[in-house]
Nucleic acid binder design. Structure first.
Lengths: 189, 189
DNA sequence: GTCTATATAAAGATAGAC
DNA sequence: GTCTATCTTTATATAGAC
């Protein structure tokens, strides 16, 4: 049971990373301060620098998502998987993701990170869509998910406040589904 | 023809505001600097402070949108109006809007401004939707538009790069339309 | 190994010369 | 009225004491 030095240090690092995720998620990269993160983790600010080298490196490690959910199955399954994220059927959105998203419009590194992840998902979806413009459709599906998540989680849009994730996902299903099929004006007039 | 002092000053102010919109739209509130704005406007940085008082006041004036497009007509017209914005049928998205959006996730004032505008549009849309959950549906329509705009204009998602706004709007129509109607699983299998 | 104290840098804001 | 020079603040980063 190695319970000194390395173990203590590992625990401190974990507390700092957790605090970093929270503060970055709430305020974004620029407005987050090492001081605030250290304070929340109950360590000395200098220690944070000692451990992680720089604010940027701390950010990189903090927002690194553990695993990349692969998104497999047929098209209908993929749609359900996307909706399940919004519906929080697989737990709340990870702090690391929120932190990344919070900074994506103003911090170049975060922008690149988010774009890369979204591009990846677009590609996975696209290959399951049987249409000429599969890429475009997949991109619109992902963009829609992004918009709803931003409006709900980060912008706190009034009409989405206090609405259960389950209801949001349900109401959104027809819109997402419409993007998977070639056009048909559809619907009772 | 009043062409001294006041007229010159008015022109300088206008140049500064235009530069501010550009810089705020590109870098967001935090990373935008008075110096960069002044440089682009070809005036002295001190002049900017002299004219506008503070960075925040400059931001407020720069992102103030001239008129609030009222969004009127029946539901189908409203949908077309929304799509026309994405489709850029009414010209490119104003720099002021982009500046506001760029900062909405990290600058509290910008967040409040965007939320207020979106809430307003949700309400307008909602009152035209004949359904129990009109508010939710309207919010999802607006969130979708937001997501596509963010992904396309600010995040530069690869699959949307070089796609004409017209095609994007066309591909998006069925999804938006689906949100206006009560559910029906719909579509040929 | 951890923290105190400080160096350094960047940018907003201001005072005063011209 | 406009700009030079500077003040002040804030936060990252570092060096050295303990």
């Amino acid at each position: 049971m190695p319970n000194s030095r390395v173990e203590r240090r590992r625990r401190s690092e974990e507390r700092i990373l957790a605090a970093a995720r929270t503060v970055f998620a709430e305020r974004g990269f620029e407005r987050a301060t090492i001081r605030a993160i250290a304070s929340m983790a109950e360590v000395d600010p200098a220690l944070v620098m000692q451990y992680f080298g720089s604010k940027q490196e701390l950010f990189d490690l903090a927002v690194r998502i553990p695993a990349i959910p692969p998104l497999n199955g047929g098209l209908d399954e993929l749609v359900e998987e996307l909706l399940a994220r919004i519906g929080m059927k697989i737990g709340p959105i990870p702090q690391a993701s929120l932190a990344m998203m919070r900074s994506m419009l103003t911090h170049p590194e975060a922008a690149e990170g988010v774009r890369a992840r979204l591009d990846e998902q677009v590609e996975q979806l696209s290959s399951a869509i049987p249409a000429e413009d599969a890429d475009l459709r997949a991109a619109l599906m992902i963009s829609t998910m992004l918009g709803v998540t931003v409006a709900h989680q980060l912008l706190d849009l009034t009409a989405l406040r206090d609405v259960s994730p389950t209801r949001i996902a349900a109401a959104l299903r027809p819109a997402i589904t419409a993007l998977t099929r070639p056009d048909e004006p559809a619907g009772p007039s």
